[in-house]
């Protein structure tokens, strides 16, 4: 198993290194003539107004929250899916109960309107 992870590790390093090397090469090859106008932020053709790191609506957070809960749920369904062929009907029903408890929560959140984008 470790060999498989070793390959993954090597691949991660390679896939980070390839674009990094390409960008570095291009950085060396390309001309560097910065000036003040060129380096200004590209917004509406005007000076950037106020703080850039503006605040955001709560909706993004709500989606991320629901996503987090369902992500965790799905991750722990994967081992059960692997064990599915050896499971009895009772175990399958347990898995269904596990999903439907969260599905109930999902329906509540839906009814409450937290999933709608106003």
């Amino acid at each position: 198993m470790l060999n498989q992870w070793l390959y993954i590790g090597i691949f991660v390093v390679i896939s980070l290194a390839l674009p990094a090397v390409a960008i570095l090469l291009a950085r060396i090859l390309s001309p560097k003539k910065p000036n003040k106008i060129k380096n200004s932020a590209y917004e509406c053709g005007m000076e950037t107004y106020d703080k850039t790191w503006v605040q955001f609506r709560i909706q993004y957070y709500l989606y991320a929250l629901v996503f987090l809960i369902f992500d965790v749920e799905t991750v722990f369904l994967f081992p059960i899916a692997v064990a599915y062929n050896q499971a009895t009907l009772f175990m399958v029903i347990e898995a269904i109960i596990f999903i439907s408890i969260l599905f109930g929560g999902f329906l509540y959140v839906w009814r409450k309107g937290a999933l709608s984008w106003y």
Partner: peptide, 10 residues
């Protein structure tokens, strides 16, 4: 993974 999955619903 198989042992883990079986243990979770056993």
């Amino acid at each position: 993974v198989l042992a883990f999955g079986t243990g979770l619903v056993d």
